[in-house]
Design a protein around this nucleic acid. Structure first.
Lengths: 232, 232
DNA sequence: TAGATTGTTAATCGATTAACAATC
DNA sequence: TAGATTGTTAATCGATTAACAATC
């Protein structure tokens, strides 16, 4: 890929010296996104126990389980420069990732299904750090209406359209049983939700312009138990 | 790779006709494992709504979001043969995946942290289908001792070593706060646990022979919100 | 048979790793 | 300076896709 900093002169390719701007145009690839998120978790995690404010690519690489070259490439991509012999400034890396992944931009979400899982997600620390704020719960159990979980009121699913519009939520987190997941997803789309994070143990489908993340936790379970069972 | 079925005669390479045995020796690669799990979820999910007992590779591929060639390769790997013009028998595929991934072999697990997340996991339907059975809870809140969640008694974390030995659990599911995760993990290793599924929002480390799955749910969240925020 | 779908090889594509110069 | 770490290109490796013959 050529950028404005490149020059060809008399057939000699000069190395670009440009102050690389954070690559905020164009879409990050899924795998890159995942790695950046893991770097971020790792750096925030370590910041409490380490006194040093610089970190080498090798250290991040070890923590996340990738090659150190990969880490340097990813950081270069988002415009972070390290210092040879020293490393990367932890705070700079964290800030760059937050900027590129958009953590500063608040994202309002509703949780559909005020059960244990919904409550657990609402109280999960750290989600706020990613710019996520839960603004309401929905459930179809009248006993739960008007109760408060994690500071949010529980509404009837019948009120979804109105409440979601009022609060301006764009993301919905589905923690309902499998058999009602698709129906609720359809209603959420109708209510103007733009993305659905689905924890129900089923796959839901939506119109093309509504993003779905099917969080099949079982995938992680199977990987783990596969190795466990085979090592016995 | 050559297998016993291959033959070279006079320089002519014959196609092997062997009845491919399920590839149960050797270790499945992580990505293959993930795809097989997704096929499985998709097939079990559809079985309730579809009346047909055959399914084409193209259909599975669409459901899971991979190429249909990939599906046929994966199924060939685990020894499932399809019929041209017809497809694969749903039940055969499900059985083969269950066999290769070891779902028939029961895996006993304990949950450490009897909070909302722990409760949600215990009541999550479908885990039983993967051969997972929860046999006990541990918590350090005396108010919870001897209560029952999802049919399992809650013990004190101080009793972990003894109870885990008695029940013969090999897997531990960590749903405690981040700050106690590493300490509890160390104790679990000491108690003879062979694998830890970590839901605490931190990364834990263990001796090499204890498998860890750090379930960073945030990774899924970031991917979803990234696209959401950028599409506005 | 004709047509659809599997099974498998070959080609492409992308991601990871290796190598090494640049730099502090 | 010497040595360590970054930054970047080139090479390798593996995964995905394309092509097509085999098969029912």
């Amino acid at each position: 890929m050529r950028t404005a900093g490149d020059t060809d002169e008399g057939g000699v390719r000069r190395r670009k010296k440009a102050v690389a701007p954070a690559e905020t145009r164009g879409w990050m690839k899924r795998l890159t996104l995942e790695r950046l998120t893991r770097y971020y978790i790792c750096l925030c995690d370590n910041s409490s126990r380490s006194q040093s404010d610089v970190v080498s690519s090798a250290r991040i690489a070890e923590c996340v389980g990738v090659d150190d070259t990969q880490v340097r490439k990813d950081l270069a991509l988002i415009g972070v420069r390290g210092r040879p012999r020293v490393g990367f400034k932890r705070g700079e890396v964290i800030a760059a990732i937050r900027g590129v992944l958009g953590f500063e931009k608040q994202c309002k979400a509703v949780i559909v299904g005020a059960g244990r899982l919904g409550g657990a997600i609402a109280e999960y620390p750290g989600f706020a750090d990613f710019g996520l704020s839960i603004v309401a719960f929905f459930d179809n159990d009248p006993e739960k209406f008007d109760t408060v979980i994690g500071g949010c009121k529980v509404y009837s699913t019948g009120e979804m359209k109105q409440v979601i519009r009022e609060l301006g939520a764009r993301l919905a987190i589905l923690t309902c049983p499998a058999d009602s997941a698709q129906v609720l997803a359809d209603e959420l789309v109708d209510a103007g939700i733009r993305a659905i994070w689905n924890f129900a143990p089923t796959t839901i489908v939506t119109p093309e312009d509504v993003i779905v993340g099917n969080e099949h936790v079982s995938v992680g379970l199977v990987a783990l138990t596969y190795y466990l069972r085979r090592s016995e």
